[in-house]
């Protein structure tokens, strides 16, 4: 089921201005994505984990959200140690894993998890609609924001519609398998979903025209940029800059 699952309204991160969070997470992700040195990457991962603790993300939630990334990482671990040229580390069934390959894979693992941890803090402390408003304030094109709102609003509605159609199929003893009948049925399911959605879109559009929709959405949410926000932005940006220094000046 599609759910946001954000919690903890008393946490420090929840009360922060969402714009600050977006800017901080964005710069953090960019810096980590271009970093390569282990010192910088481990520092980034530590920093991200500290923020996760500060934001009081529940450990269960945190681990659950890290699963998709690590599945992809696991996929890379199967290949990278063997396909990188370098000093041999160990041989399994004629395949040679190299030292460089393992380091490379480890590097990617730390990188991905650090970036993801930061993103998880952002998600678990900010409702998605608030993120949309914040992106709007950050001057992301208006049309894109509207599209974002509409898509998000209707995902739930259409998902319910999908479950309803699926139930109807089950009631009629539909038993999916690897055959033409299954594929055709699913194709018709998707087709019906599209037909219903486009009908709904037309109704929604007409309803909006009745209410004087001219293509502008007015946000009732106003963010205030207070002293705590200012301070947090300053602290996080300087920490991110420190990560950059670790990467490029080779202090350590």
């Amino acid at each position: 089921m599609i759910s946001e699952g954000y919690t903890n309204k008393n946490s420090f991160a929840y009360q922060l201005d969402p714009r600050v969070k977006i800017v901080a997470v964005f710069f953090f992700s960019v810096i980590v994505a271009v970093s390569n040195r282990f010192v910088a990457l481990s520092a980034a991962l530590t920093l991200a984990l500290c923020i996760v603790m500060l934001a009081k993300v529940s450990p269960k939630e945190f681990v659950r959200r890290l699963i998709p990334v690590n599945i992809f990482i696991l996929f890379l671990w199967i290949f990278l140690p063997f396909s990188t040229q370098g000093k041999p580390l160990l041989a399994i069934a004629g395949l040679v894993a190299t030292y460089e390959g393992v380091t490379y894979a480890a590097q990617i693992t730390i990188k991905s998890n650090a970036i993801m941890a930061a993103l998880i803090v952002l998600i678990s402390s900010t409702p998605i609609l608030t993120l949309g408003h914040a992106l709007h304030e950050l001057k992301v094109p208006q049309k894109l924001i509207h599209l974002f709102f509409f898509t998000y609003r209707y995902i739930h509605v259409i998902h319910r519609e999908y479950l309803r159609l699926l139930n109807a199929m089950k009631v009629r003893a539909f038993n999916p398998g690897t055959n033409m009948h299954t594929y055709k049925t699913f194709a018709h399911l998707v087709g019906m979903l599209l037909v219903r959605s486009s009908d709904r879109a037309e109704r929604v559009h007409n309803a909006m025209l009745c209410r004087n929709f001219t293509g502008r959405l007015y946000s009732l949410k106003h963010f205030s940029f207070n002293r705590t926000d200012c301070l947090s932005l300053f602290v996080t940006l300087s920490l991110i800059a420190a990560l950059g220094l670790l990467e490029w000046t080779r202090i350590m």
Binding site: L147, F150, T151, Y154, V157, Y162, E202, V204
Partner: peptide, 21 residues
């Protein structure tokens, strides 16, 4: 067009759901 946004939004929501199938 500004006025197409509900339609495109709802269709992309439909595709989002289709990708869950």
């Amino acid at each position: 067009d500004q006025k197409d946004i509900p339609t495109v939004g709802i269709l992309s929501a439909a595709f989002f759901v289709a990708s869950l199938v």
